[in-house]
Design a protein around this nucleic acid. Sequence first.
DNA 1: CTCACCTATCGATGAATGTCAATACGTGGC
DNA 2: GCCACGTATTGACATTCATCGATAGGTGAG
Lengths: 120, 120
Amino acid sequence: MAASLPLVDTCCSPLTEGALDDAAASTLAAKFKALADPARVRLVSIIAAADGGEACVCDLTEPLGLSQPTVSHHMKLLAAAGLVAREQRGRWAYYRVVQDELTSLAGVLRSGAAPSVNNG
Amino acid sequence: MAASLPLVDTCCSPLTEGALDDAAASTLAAKFKALADPARVRLVSIIAAADGGEACVCDLTEPLGLSQPTVSHHMKLLAAAGLVAREQRGRWAYYRVVQDELTSLAGVLRSGAAPSVNNG
DNA sequence: CTCACCTATCGATGAATGTCAATACGTGGC
DNA sequence: GCCACGTATTGACATTCATCGATAGGTGAG
């Protein structure tokens, strides 16, 4: 009866709704892995908080205290996971957060069932 | 006197609300790291889908195809991250999902600002 | 007490990861 | 064309991680 909306089609069904097969779990784990590092978590938050919601690599090295290649490496991983989008503008590469992906991940973590219906 | 708000005290403030410091990012990354493995993602989903919302290690080795020590290891990591709770009952160790933690993580991923106000 | 059973820990090993210095790539200015 | 600038890639290194077999710890049954 679940009015199955294609919302979470991007990734997987909610974690707590049913047992996931290995493929779905791998897809999901890959996205969580992209956020499984303090540097990448900070990158996402800094970009989201940046003016215009975007930032170039040159703006990210200093607040993180990491080298430029390292930041570029992290951004590549975040982009590969679909959590940020890259746009080349002149000599600069601007990154912005893909909120849809974060929201989709959030949906996976929320319990799909009605809150009143506990497991008792 | 850190006027720390007890609201999101469980974890951190939303990712997209402002730049996180290293401590908050590390705390957050540690929780995501617990879900950054297909085996652990499956474990959480299987436990959540299990009868009564709980399962013992003996019920988890077979569907995952992993050895008992490996499953025990993963459960330890999930428990350390606060994502599952352990309860010893007789000879069995029953694990259940801590939905509050998952919901808290979901809150971090959702954009705290009004949805209409995009970053354009 | 002894045994069977379930779980956790230990030790080892191959793979993945984060980091940097050096360097290559692309773009715009002269 | 040449150079300066921002970014991505390469190579190397130390650390962390996932996995297993062997084994120890703890609980209930006989």
